[in-house]
Amino acid sequence: MTLAILTKEDLQEFKTELLADIMKIVKADDNTTLKKWLKSKEVVKLLNISSGTLQTLRSNGILTFSKVGGTYYYANEDIEKLMNSTKKAANLNLFR
């Protein structure tokens, strides 16, 4: 059996390579999971709301949608706008 000796430099190089590989994986996952259109179940899970609340957002015109057959689709961009507008409104309430 051969004995290998590792130095601090070897470990530092391994750490750097490992972190670079992890960052590549994370970036690849971010690009593939970002969808342009989301179904109702995905929106409910993403926003942590009930399906009834989602229906209320649709009915009140707060969240726009497209319906194909019996399935509702929501633009990811519209969900981000909704979240940003909610965040701004919450920030304004803090200073009152």
Rank of each mutant, 00 (worst) to 15 (best):
S85K: 06
I49E: 05
K39P: 15
A89C: 01
K39Y: 14
L11F: 12
G70L: 11
T7S: 14
L19Q: 10
M1Q: 10
L18Q: 02
E9F: 05
L6A: 01
E42S: 08
I25T: 09
V44R: 08
I25Y: 05
W37C: 01
L38I: 03
T53I: 12
N76Y: 14
S51G: 04
E9S: 10
Q55E: 14
L54W: 04
L47R: 10
K15M: 09
L63R: 00
N76V: 06
K35A: 09
S50W: 01
V26T: 15
L19C: 04
L57H: 13
L47F: 05
L63C: 02
L94S: 08
I49L: 05
T32H: 07
K15A: 12
T71M: 11
T86W: 09
A28Y: 07
L82D: 00
A28S: 11
T53D: 14
L46N: 08
L54G: 01
I25S: 02
E77N: 05
L38P: 04
L63T: 02
N76W: 10
K67L: 03
L46R: 13
L18E: 02
I62A: 11
I49A: 06
S51F: 07
N91F: 08
L63K: 02
A89E: 11
K35G: 00
A90D: 10
V68K: 12
K41H: 10
F95K: 11
L94Y: 06
V43M: 15
K36L: 09
K45P: 00
A4S: 01
V44I: 15
T86C: 10
K27F: 05
L54S: 05
V68S: 14
D10S: 01
G52P: 05
N60A: 13
I25G: 03
Y73E: 11
N31I: 14
E80K: 10
K35T: 02
N91T: 02
M83F: 02
T53Y: 14
S85W: 01
I22E: 11
L82K: 00
A75I: 03
F14P: 09
L82I: 00
Q12C: 03
L82Q: 00
L11K: 07
L47Q: 07
S40G: 07
L38T: 02
K67F: 02
S59F: 12
A89S: 07
A75S: 08
D21W: 03
T64K: 11
T7K: 07
K88I: 12
